[in-house]
Design a binder for these strands. Structure first.
Lengths: 100, 100
DNA sequence: TTAAATTAGCCAATATTTGACAAGTCATTA
DNA sequence: TAATGACTTGTCAAATATTGGCTAATTTAA
């Protein structure tokens, strides 16, 4: 499950149209369509707004949105998994102790 | 240990000057300095070239370089670690089975 | 103090991303 | 079949971000 697929799923459950969500996000329908298909990246504010509009957990959407961005970086990289393991190990995120 | 810090370490071990590496990479010294301090991002080709010039494992440098980029995305995000855990779990990387 | 090495700040060139539009497909219905 | 509505595709210019290079400042070492 990835971000675009998830918001499409939720939109269909709520029986909303792309043009309705697009209007709420103040973007045009083609743009929204592209976000749903992963062709364009949603802005952070759009993710939060979508969680509202779709009445769903913003953290779930944010997490999927972030994962998508990280994936974009490592998808073609042999060492991608090792790199994210390395980040986890250095545990700089939770401890706020340093930077990469 | 992060990318910039590591190449600085290696450079000093080899007793090389920034301007020497900069010249080899065909960028100017201030630019190289910024890469070392994490102010600017090295290009992938620069990473490989640096591994050569510093006579070190290219995979180590590439991994650190990737980790730095991933870190840039999640560093200020509460959900950053969950996002990378999610990527690992979905194991789309090794299996090449899908996308986020 | 000098000179070399490194860093900081700025700016223009370049690249990437964004949003908008027009036109297209596809499915449904009159 | 024709028309309508929902969604998608492609293209383009505007807005943003990134890059590289220059000058000047700062730090370091002799």
């Amino acid at each position: 499950m990835y971000f675009g697929k998830r918001i499409k799923e939720l939109r269909e459950e709520r029986e909303l149209l792309q043009r309705q969500l697009a209007a709420s996000l103040e973007i045009d329908t083609p743009m929204y369509s592209k976000i749903e298909r992963g062709d364009r990246r949603a802005k952070r504010e759009h993710v939060l707004k979508l969680a509202e509009l779709l009445d769903t957990d913003p953290n779930e959407l944010l997490m999927l949105w972030l994962a998508g961005q990280v994936y974009e970086i490592i998808k073609d990289e042999e060492l991608g998994l090792r790199a994210i393991d390395y980040i986890k190990e250095s545990s700089i995120l939770s401890s706020k102790s340093g930077k990469l």
